[in-house]
Simulated scan of single mutants.
Amino acid sequence: MFGIIKRTRGAMVVLGLIALTACSATYRNHGYVPLEEDLQQLVVGVDTRATVDDMIGAPSTAGMLDQGDYYYVRSRVREFGMYRPEVVERQVLAISFAEDDTIANIERFGLEDGHIVPLSRRVTDSSVIDNGFLRQILSNIGNIDPSQMFN
């Protein structure tokens, strides 16, 4: 009798440990931001784009133009059980360049700063917002000139 109770208690402990480890948070890291020690080697107004590429590497995201600014982005996402993944840390390092291709500014932003940096924005404004098909047809009735139809 005591053997069955001991085995049951042991099985319950093992199942409890499995349940605890299954509900632990997991973290995913995405992206790359150079270390502060590496950034200390860069001199604003002296170093160029080529120097930045050699010292800390080219970023995965750059400005929209060929000679745009550099953006290094790193995110850490926490996944916990059945809950939606949550971004717990985000760093954006922005290196802007002057017209002579030297470093103009080095800035670091995080989630706590509240700055929104759109890295990719693919939005096209449409002239038919809030206009349904029938509204578009009916609004053009007065704009038709019969003389243009028959020359």
Rank of each mutant, 00 (worst) to 15 (best):
T21E: 05
N105A: 11
A98Y: 04
I103H: 09
I106A: 02
L20R: 02
T102K: 06
R108G: 06
S126T: 10
I4V: 07
V46D: 01
L35R: 14
I106Y: 07
E36H: 11
T51H: 11
I56V: 08
C23K: 10
T48A: 00
D47M: 06
G31P: 06
Y32N: 02
S139F: 04
A58L: 11
S120F: 04
N131G: 03
D113S: 01
D66T: 05
R9H: 00
M64N: 11
R122P: 03
V123I: 04
V14I: 08
M12E: 13
I5V: 15
L42G: 02
M55R: 15
T124Q: 12
H30Y: 14
R9V: 14
S75E: 15
A19S: 05
M82V: 12
T26R: 12
R49G: 03
D47C: 03
A19V: 01
N151Y: 12
F2S: 14
T102Y: 08
A62E: 11
M149C: 13
T8Q: 06
V87H: 01
S139K: 05
F80L: 13
E99L: 12
L93G: 06
V13C: 04
D130G: 13
D101L: 00
L20E: 03
E89N: 08
M64P: 08
I137L: 13
R122T: 05
D101N: 12
L65P: 02
S127P: 09
M55F: 13
V87I: 13
V92P: 04
Q91C: 02
T51L: 08
F97K: 00
F109L: 11
H115C: 02
G45C: 09
G142H: 06
G110I: 07
V88G: 00
A22D: 09
V88L: 06
Q67V: 01
S60K: 13
M64K: 08
D125V: 11
F150E: 13
G110M: 02
N151S: 15
R108W: 03
I141V: 15
L111E: 01
F2M: 14
V88H: 00
F2C: 04
R135T: 14
F150R: 09
D69R: 03
D101S: 10
I56F: 07
M64R: 12
M82W: 07
S24Q: 14
A50G: 08
V52T: 06
F150N: 10
A94E: 13
F97Y: 03
R90F: 02
G81Q: 00
Y83L: 02
R49I: 00
M149T: 14
T21A: 09
I5H: 06
D47K: 03
D125T: 00
L65E: 10
R84K: 11
G31C: 07
T48M: 00
R9A: 15
V14E: 05
L119N: 04
L65R: 09
H115R: 11
D101F: 04
V73A: 01
R90H: 04
R7T: 13
L138W: 14
E107F: 04
F2L: 14
Q40E: 12
